[in-house]
Amino acid sequence: MTALALDVGGTKFAAAFVADDGTPVEPKTVPVPATSVWDTCAALLREVADTEPITAVGIASAGPVDVQGGTVAPINMPEWSRGFPLVEAVRSLFPNARVALAMDGAAATLAEQRFGAGRGTDDLLGVVLGTGIGGGIVLGGRLVSGRTGNAGHIGHMVSAYGSERCACGGAGCIETVSSGTAAVKWARARGWGGRDGAALAADAQAGSGVAAAALERAGTALGQVIASAAALTDVSLAVVGGGFAQAGTPLWRPMLASAARQARLGFIRDLRIVPASLGALGTLAGASALTASALTLGHE
């Protein structure tokens, strides 16, 4: 099977063929334009596909997604905000291909279970920390899709530390507390003058009190939510990745301590939380794995 993988992010498209060990081969990326979004995506797919016979395409997309309808509506992509029929559009390029669609956090989680930090584990929770917070669930070695394909969207679990209105319309979501965007916002409101999550992490490592407090708060809240999600799903492993997960000890120490305090039930007392190992390209590996999985998310 020649499977083509597509990652639809809020700011960029990425596409590649993926080797059997989960390594994307010469991946190509392009920025997402303000208009003519599909034209840009289609041009990328044609370039990567070149003359290869395409029999399967795996798509990982920023959410929300609707795997049954084959549509995606990334929050940061206004032209597709009402739901773009991406599966149908991809089929128009590759009529003989099987197309599988999943949320990007779910695909990243599947990749970690198949090729990365969760390899050898049949049941795990994935968390992706960045400007927002995404995730996914694998149970019994199979990706959990849910009714629409959005299962595992841990960013919209409510945190005891949260009170602000979330972009989803609710209030108190962990995304408003522990995402890179939220931690930076919290620190700036208390006098920190840095630019982004990387700067926040660097200043926390250097001893800035406000930066360290922001990461302490973010990590503590996230640890609680991960432990709660583990209790719900009965997993013993959580894999945490994404750019903001690189913040280091000031984030990870409180996260691990908080999760240990919260995970007191016998069946989750052995909960482990480990860094993802596949990096930014893991989502492409997960998209490819979708096409080889028995779970094709309704898109044969």
Rank of each mutant, 00 (worst) to 15 (best):
G10Q: 13
F13Y: 02
F13D: 05
A15D: 01
V18H: 04
D20F: 13
V25E: 01
P27S: 01
T29L: 00
V37C: 11
D39S: 15
D39W: 09
C41Q: 07
L44S: 04
E47G: 00
T51I: 12
T55H: 15
A60Q: 13
S61K: 04
S61Y: 01
A62N: 10
D66V: 07
D66K: 07
V67S: 06
Q68S: 10
I75E: 05
I75L: 09
I75R: 07
N76M: 09
N76G: 08
F84Q: 12
P85W: 01
P85I: 07
P85H: 06
E88Y: 08
A89G: 05
L93D: 08
N96H: 06
R98Y: 09
A106D: 11
T109C: 05
E112Q: 05
Q113N: 00
F115M: 02
G116P: 08
G116V: 12
T121P: 02
D123G: 14
L125A: 03
L125P: 04
V128E: 09
L129H: 14
G130Y: 14
G134R: 09
G140S: 13
T148G: 13
G152K: 08
G155R: 03
A160L: 14
Y161I: 09
C168Y: 02
G172M: 04
C173H: 12
T176I: 06
G180R: 08
G180L: 13
T181I: 08
A183P: 09
V184G: 05
D196W: 13
A199Q: 15
D203T: 15
Q205C: 12
S208H: 15
V210R: 09
V210G: 14
L215W: 09
R217C: 10
G219H: 02
G223R: 02
V225Q: 05
A229K: 04
A238Y: 07
G242K: 10
F244T: 02
A247N: 11
L251S: 13
L256K: 00
A259E: 12
I268E: 05
R269D: 09
L271I: 01
L271G: 00
V274Y: 00
V274K: 01
G279D: 02
G279H: 06
A280N: 14
T283C: 11
A287L: 05
A292K: 01
S293L: 10
G298A: 10
E300H: 15
